[in-house]
Simulated scan of single mutants.
Amino acid sequence: MAQLPLDELTAVIARIQGLLLTEEKVTTAIRLLARAAKESVPGTIGAGVSLIDGRGRRTSSGYTDTIVSQADTVQYEYGEGPCLTAWASERPVLVTDLNVEQRWPQWRNGIAGLPILAVVSAPLLAGKESLGALKLYAAAPDTYDHGSAALLQLFAAPAATLISHIQANEAPHRMTAELQASLYTRDLVNRATGVVMERMGLRQEDAVRFLIRQAREEKTSLQQVSERVVAGTPASGT
């Protein structure tokens, strides 16, 4: 297994860690990391990171090649695979040859049409929390060995720190925006309900049902219907 020279590897990691001081988004930073990880092991056809998105879904981020997303999607669909195992066990996972691998039968069958025969994945550990997994895919067996897993862990450590840092900084702003949107929608619906009650002589619960029914019939959101009512444009039937 060929490795990056120590000074080059150190420079790559320093560049990744330097992003901690910038305004870079998670995906941008991860793309740099994935590209560096891919280039560190000859024969790698794709690299990427598995994370949990804002809706609690497992997703692939910053991947270098489409094949990474394709292989990962099958893992998420069946809930099994080397990256999910590395994530859950908090230990590196090495697959030298999928032709003889016995683990994850559904995932192996699901990617049978993809040119993937070797995988190495390392967990992203920030303190006591496992944030996800960094992975490499190869088309030839025996592309990776335990040295590859050790090298990938060197990338995973600053990556976990980076992701944890950016997520922590973005979370308060994201939560504030979501809270503001929620409060705005609630106030808007309440105001629209009052307008419908007065205009149609309905009780509060009936007015709310009317707005919901309009949204369904028009295939739009309750917020959009409420905005129109409050703005003075009659909803259908008023």
Rank of each mutant, 00 (worst) to 15 (best):
E80P: 12
Q106P: 02
T59F: 02
E77D: 14
T85D: 13
T66F: 04
A126P: 14
V93K: 05
G79L: 03
L51P: 03
E80H: 15
R108G: 09
Y78K: 15
T96H: 10
P123K: 00
G79V: 09
A112P: 05
D72N: 04
S121L: 03
N109V: 03
K38S: 13
E77C: 05
K38D: 14
Y63K: 06
L84T: 14
S61W: 02
G56N: 03
A126I: 06
R58G: 01
D53L: 08
T96W: 08
L117H: 15
A86P: 02
A118G: 09
V41I: 15
Y76G: 04
P123L: 00
P123Q: 01
I116L: 06
T59P: 00
G79Q: 06
R55I: 00
G62C: 10
T73C: 01
T44H: 04
L98K: 07
G79Y: 11
R108M: 10
V100W: 02
W104I: 02
R57N: 13
I111F: 07
Q75P: 14
Q106D: 13
D65Q: 15
V41R: 15
G56F: 07
V49A: 12
L94Y: 05
V120W: 09
P92F: 03
G46D: 08
W107Q: 11
V119I: 14
S69R: 11
E39F: 01
G62I: 10
Y76S: 04
I116M: 03
I52R: 11
T44Q: 05
P92V: 00
D65H: 15
W104H: 03
R57K: 13
T96Y: 07
E39W: 02
A88I: 10
V41Y: 09
P42C: 10
W104L: 00
G110T: 05
R57P: 01
L117G: 01
I67W: 11
T59Y: 01
G56D: 08
R91A: 14
T85R: 07
S60G: 11
Y76D: 04
P115W: 10
G110E: 06
G113S: 14
V41P: 11
S89F: 00
R91L: 14
V95H: 03
W104F: 12
D53N: 14
T73L: 08
D53K: 09
N99S: 14
S69H: 04
D72C: 00
G110H: 11
W107T: 06
Q102F: 04
L124Q: 02
V120D: 07
S69V: 03
P92A: 07
A122G: 09
A112W: 01
G43H: 13
G110I: 12
I52F: 11
E101V: 08
G54T: 08
T85H: 13
Q102A: 10
T59H: 01
G46N: 06
T96F: 09
R58C: 01
L98N: 09
S89V: 00
G113P: 08
V93Q: 15
L117R: 15
S40C: 09
V93A: 08
A118V: 07
I45V: 15
S60I: 12
S61E: 05
A126S: 15
T73M: 04
T59G: 01
Y78S: 14
S121E: 08
P115G: 07
G43N: 15
P105S: 06
P123V: 00
G110R: 10
S61L: 03
G56Q: 05
